[in-house]
Simulated assay, not measured.
Amino acid sequence: MYLSRLQLDPRHKQARTDLANPYELHATLCHAFAEANQTPPRFLWRAEEGKIPTVLVQSVEMPNWEKLTQRFPGYFAQRPESKPIPLEHLQPGQVLRFRLRANPTVTRKDPHNPEKRKRHGLKDVEAQLEWLSRQGRKGGFAVLGAMVAQSERVRMFKHTGGSPIVLQSVLYEGHLRITDLEAFKNTLTGGLGHAKALGFGLLSVARG
């Protein structure tokens, strides 16, 4: 598994377009994994706020960021950094710091059509934290302590002029303990929750 750190130049037209629309950013990132006529492998990513716009990309395959440099000269503010993520150091019972931007949801029956079920974003902080705990029980970890560092509803457009898609975006930070090593490794590689292609679900962990 590989982790890439990308710093985008906000003066670049394509970079500004991508930073304003997760659909566009995902499409741009795909160029580093596959040709235009190929289906790219799944990968996780998260945009980080800061003085220089930064995007973290986690993938099973090694990306080729030179393709983006050739396609969009000047897109990156600095040369992309990619490094392997060793998973063999992980152990059951290990305590790790984590950071996660997720789209916590619950599925309920549609009141207008009981045969259908609709996904709803969770707005209440307590419900958001309960969602994270449930994900942990399925994903091989126990949440020891967590806080919601940011919670907001974000609007995005898949197509120009189309109807907006509204998602609940929640940034979690805290500590976890690994309870099931194999399940936890699957969580790291596969991500948590829905809307992964739109920048959600990447669980970043570190010692401490």
Rank of each mutant, 00 (worst) to 15 (best):
R99V: 03
Y75S: 01
L68G: 02
F72R: 00
L90F: 12
K109R: 15
Q78G: 00
Y75V: 12
E88P: 02
E88A: 12
F76H: 03
T105R: 10
L68P: 02
H112G: 14
K116E: 09
Q70T: 01
I85F: 13
L68K: 11
E88R: 15
V60A: 15
E88F: 13
F72P: 00
Y75T: 01
P80D: 03
D110W: 09
G93W: 08
T105A: 10
H112T: 06
P111A: 07
L100N: 04
P86Q: 13
E88W: 13
H112Y: 14
L96Q: 11
F98E: 03
W65D: 11
L90D: 02
A77M: 06
F98T: 01
L87K: 08
E66H: 02
F76S: 04
R79H: 13
L90G: 03
K83H: 08
K116G: 07
P80N: 04
V60K: 15
L87I: 06
E81D: 08
T107F: 01
I85A: 13
E66R: 07
P73N: 03
V60T: 12
K116F: 04
P114M: 11
F76Y: 09
N103V: 04
L68I: 14
L87P: 01
L68N: 05
P84N: 04
T107N: 08
R71H: 03
D110V: 06
P92L: 09
G74V: 07
P80S: 02
L96R: 13
R99T: 04
F76E: 04
R117P: 00
R117G: 00
N103K: 02
L100M: 08
L96D: 05
L68T: 06
S59K: 09
V60W: 13
F72S: 00
P73Y: 05
A77Q: 10
S59Y: 05
A77N: 01
R108S: 09
R97L: 08
Q91F: 08
N64F: 03
T105V: 15
T105K: 05
E66P: 00
H112S: 14
R101T: 12
P86I: 06
N113S: 13
D110I: 07
N103F: 08
V106H: 10
Y75L: 15
E61Y: 11
N113K: 12
H89M: 13
F98V: 01
P111I: 02
P92Q: 14
P114K: 14
S59Q: 04
R71N: 00
K116W: 06
E66L: 03
M62D: 02
K67W: 10
H89C: 07
L96E: 10
L87G: 04
T107A: 10
N113P: 04
F72E: 01
R79D: 10
Q78H: 11
F76D: 06
P73L: 06
S82K: 04
K109V: 07
M62L: 15
E66T: 03
P80F: 01
Q91T: 11
Q91G: 05
P80G: 00
G74P: 08
R71G: 00
A77H: 09
K67L: 14
P92C: 09
E61Q: 15
